[in-house]
């Protein structure tokens, strides 16, 4: 019997990396969007140091990166 442990491990690792990366990127984007809200607390402990514009831009970069990972995954399967 020939069990392809290598492929199984590869599937596990690739899935782990892709899923965790996407979720972390989206979570970071939401932190950024929270900080960019007009009523977000400023100056206090734990408050954002970035300006709203920077926070919003960084959020969109994170979302784009997450979308790119998803799109690349579909591309690899459909190829």
């Amino acid at each position: 019997m020939n069990i392809d442990w290598g492929s199984l491990l590869l599937v596990a690792l690739v899935s782990l990396a892709a899923a965790v990366a996407v979720v972390v990127l989206v979570a970071l984007a939401l932190v950024g969007l929270s900080a960019a809200r007009p009523d977000a607390p400023r100056g206090g402990a734990g408050a954002s140091v970035a300006s709203p514009a920077v926070a919003t831009t960084l959020s969109y970069v994170c979302l784009l990166a997450a979308a790119a990972i998803a799109a690349y995954g579909i591309y690899l399967v459909a190829r």
Binding site: L16, A19, V23, V24, V26, L30, V31, L33, G46
Partner: peptide, 25 residues
């Protein structure tokens, strides 16, 4: 495998957004 991945991802999602605005999150 899927359960472990989802566990890690969920933990990180809550951890990262802990201080973010509730409604936005």
């Amino acid at each position: 495998v899927a359960g472990v991945i989802a566990l890690v991802a969920t933990y990180l999602a809550y951890r990262i957004t802990a201080k973010a605005d509730d409604g936005t999150t």
